[in-house]
Amino acid sequence: MHLTQGTFSYLPPLSDEQIRAQVDYALEHGWPVAIEYTDDPHPRNVYWNMWETPMFEARDAAAVMLELERCRKANPGIYVRLSAFDRSKGRQTTALSFIVDRPAEEPGFGLERTDFADRQIKYTLRPYATNSPAGRRYSHGD
């Protein structure tokens, strides 16, 4: 199951060249880019781990690509996304956010139904990956 989150979520995965072009676009608009990673794909998991600090001072996409490469190396086979922030209004607003790296195999989500009063049903979305403890959720071929 291909996780769809953020911008471009229904497109096939972006190539490095395409990512670079998007970063260029963000930097041209003055949006600093941050790199985040996680192994919890739940859509309500908004707090991904930050890879270093957002690159407020980068002027060129090469800087972001350099960090992205380092992040991928340190966190192979889990989700990595880029977020670009528009601070022109005096608050941090996500202007662009897209997944750039994902596990080779994404088991997807289970839907849990809980009955309660008057035959009502509560639905819970549960990523299969989170059945394992953090750090052991996606084995990447080894």
Binding site: E57, R59, A61, A62, A63, L66, E67
Partner: peptide, 14 residues
């Protein structure tokens, strides 16, 4: 290392 890398990143493209 982070400090140097920070500077290098800032200078990239220039």
């Amino acid at each position: 290392a982070p400090k140097t890398r920070e500077v290098l990143k800032r200078a990239m493209g220039g």
